[in-house]
Protein backbone atom coordinates (compact mmCIF):
# COMPACT_ATOMS: atom_id res chain seq x y z
CA UNK A 1 0.00 0.00 0.00
CA UNK A 2 2.83 2.41 0.75
CA UNK A 3 4.47 1.93 -2.63
CA UNK A 4 5.16 5.17 -4.48
CA UNK A 5 6.27 5.33 -8.10
CA UNK A 6 7.87 8.20 -10.06
CA UNK A 7 6.05 9.44 -13.16
CA UNK A 8 6.28 12.32 -15.63
CA UNK A 9 3.36 14.75 -15.95
CA UNK A 10 2.27 14.81 -19.61
CA UNK A 11 -0.94 16.80 -19.40
CA UNK A 12 -2.93 18.70 -16.79
CA UNK A 13 -6.72 18.55 -17.06
CA UNK A 14 -9.51 20.42 -15.33
CA UNK A 15 -10.19 19.44 -11.70
CA UNK A 16 -6.59 18.78 -10.65
CA UNK A 17 -6.24 15.69 -12.80
CA UNK A 18 -2.98 14.92 -14.54
CA UNK A 19 -2.08 12.37 -17.17
CA UNK A 20 1.23 10.85 -16.13
CA UNK A 21 3.67 8.48 -17.75
CA UNK A 22 5.38 5.77 -15.68
CA UNK A 23 7.67 4.73 -18.54
CA UNK A 24 5.41 2.33 -20.40
CA UNK A 25 2.07 2.98 -18.74
CA UNK A 26 -0.05 6.13 -18.80
CA UNK A 27 -2.62 6.89 -16.15
CA UNK A 28 -4.73 9.72 -14.79
CA UNK A 29 -3.73 10.74 -11.26
CA UNK A 30 -4.90 13.44 -8.84
CA UNK A 31 -2.65 16.48 -8.50
CA UNK A 32 -4.37 18.09 -5.46
CA UNK A 33 -1.34 17.72 -3.17
CA UNK A 34 1.36 19.25 -5.38
CA UNK A 35 1.91 22.28 -7.61
CA UNK A 36 3.37 20.93 -10.84
CA UNK A 37 3.76 21.77 -14.48
CA UNK A 38 3.80 19.60 -17.57
CA UNK A 39 7.21 17.94 -17.95
CA UNK A 40 7.90 17.74 -14.20
CA UNK A 41 8.17 14.45 -12.30
CA UNK A 42 6.06 13.38 -9.34
CA UNK A 43 5.96 10.47 -6.90
CA UNK A 44 2.55 8.72 -7.17
CA UNK A 45 0.90 6.87 -4.25
CA UNK A 46 -2.68 5.42 -4.25
CA UNK A 47 -3.49 7.46 -7.36
CA UNK A 48 -2.23 10.80 -6.01
CA UNK A 49 0.98 12.69 -6.71
CA UNK A 50 2.43 13.13 -3.20
CA UNK A 51 5.64 15.01 -4.00
CA UNK A 52 7.58 16.59 -6.83
CA UNK A 53 10.90 15.02 -7.84
CA UNK A 54 13.74 16.46 -9.84
CA UNK A 55 13.89 15.05 -13.37
CA UNK A 56 17.30 13.51 -12.76
CA UNK A 57 16.24 11.82 -9.54
CA UNK A 58 13.06 10.48 -11.11
CA UNK A 59 14.84 8.96 -14.09
CA UNK A 60 17.42 7.42 -11.77
CA UNK A 61 14.68 5.88 -9.57
CA UNK A 62 12.81 4.63 -12.62
CA UNK A 63 15.98 2.94 -13.87
CA UNK A 64 16.37 1.20 -10.51
CA UNK A 65 12.74 0.00 -10.61
CA UNK A 66 13.27 -1.37 -14.12
CA UNK A 67 16.30 -3.33 -12.92
CA UNK A 68 14.38 -4.70 -9.94
CA UNK A 69 11.40 -5.78 -12.08
CA UNK A 70 13.74 -7.41 -14.58
CA UNK A 71 15.44 -9.31 -11.76
CA UNK A 72 12.06 -10.43 -10.39
CA UNK A 73 11.06 -11.89 -13.76
CA UNK A 74 14.22 -13.93 -14.13
Amino acid sequence: MCIAVPAEVLEIKEGNIGVVDYGDLRQEVRLDLVDVEVGEFVLVHVGFAIQKLSREEALETRKIFAVVYAAMEE
Partner: peptide, 17 residues
Protein backbone atom coordinates in the same frame (compact mmCIF):
# COMPACT_ATOMS: atom_id res chain seq x y z
CA UNK B 1 -9.70 4.70 5.18
CA UNK B 2 -6.47 3.22 6.56
CA UNK B 3 -2.91 4.47 6.25
CA UNK B 4 -0.27 6.74 7.73
CA UNK B 5 0.81 10.28 6.83
CA UNK B 6 1.49 9.12 3.27
CA UNK B 7 -2.15 8.28 2.67
CA UNK B 8 -4.22 10.56 4.94
CA UNK B 9 -3.60 13.70 2.80
CA UNK B 10 -5.09 11.96 -0.27
CA UNK B 11 -8.31 11.46 1.73
CA UNK B 12 -8.22 15.05 3.00
CA UNK B 13 -7.80 16.41 -0.54
CA UNK B 14 -10.75 14.30 -1.68
CA UNK B 15 -13.07 15.43 1.12
CA UNK B 16 -12.18 19.03 0.29
CA UNK B 17 -13.70 18.49 -3.18
Amino acid sequence: SVGFETTAPTVAATLLT
